[in-house]
């Protein structure tokens, strides 16, 4: 159940990998859509925490192009609905996430990413 809300918070945590380690790139992603309860207040509150270009990029990798490249100033309902869908309803079930810097591969199986590091990668 990697959703883009969590993907957007996730950087590589391998030893010494401290720059250009975000966002992780999806590889061979298999996606499932599931309805979630819409909560406009939650979305508005969460927005400042998001890295917008990373979110737009990740959504595009998964085939969703509904978000504008620039984060809009007006948070109208139409926009919040799209944001809701991208953040909370797209589930990556299989595939992997790859660090853009050290190229560590975090495999995803059954919706669960494997974040375990090898010995030489532990900080």
């Amino acid at each position: 159940m990697v959703r883009l809300i969590t993907h957007n918070l996730l950087a590589c945590h391998a030893k010494g990998c401290t720059s250009n380690n975000f966002p992780l790139l999806f590889q061979d992603a298999a996606v499932e859509l599931r309805d979630a309860d819409f909560n406009a207040d939650f979305l508005r509150g969460f927005l400042p925490r998001l890295e917008w270009p990373a979110l737009v990029g990740a959504a595009r990798q998964l085939g969703d192009t509904s978000l504008p490249a620039e984060q809009p100033d007006m948070l109208d309902d139409d926009f919040l609905q799209k944001l809701h869908h991208v953040l909370l309803e797209i589930h990556v079930e299989e595939g992997a996430m790859v660090c853009p810097n050290c190229k560590h591969v975090y495999p995803i199986s059954n919706g669960i990413p494997n974040m375990l590091l090898a010995e030489h990668e532990i900080g």
């Binding site: 959703r3 918070l9 975000f22 925490r49 669960i112 990413p113 900080g123």
Partner: peptide
């Protein structure tokens, strides 16, 4: 919740203030 297979003794990679 979103689930992760992770050893907490290896630390987290979440961005600041997540």
């Amino acid at each position: 919740g979103d689930l992760f297979l992770q050893d907490i003794g290896q630390g987290f990679g979440f961005r600041p203030g997540s």
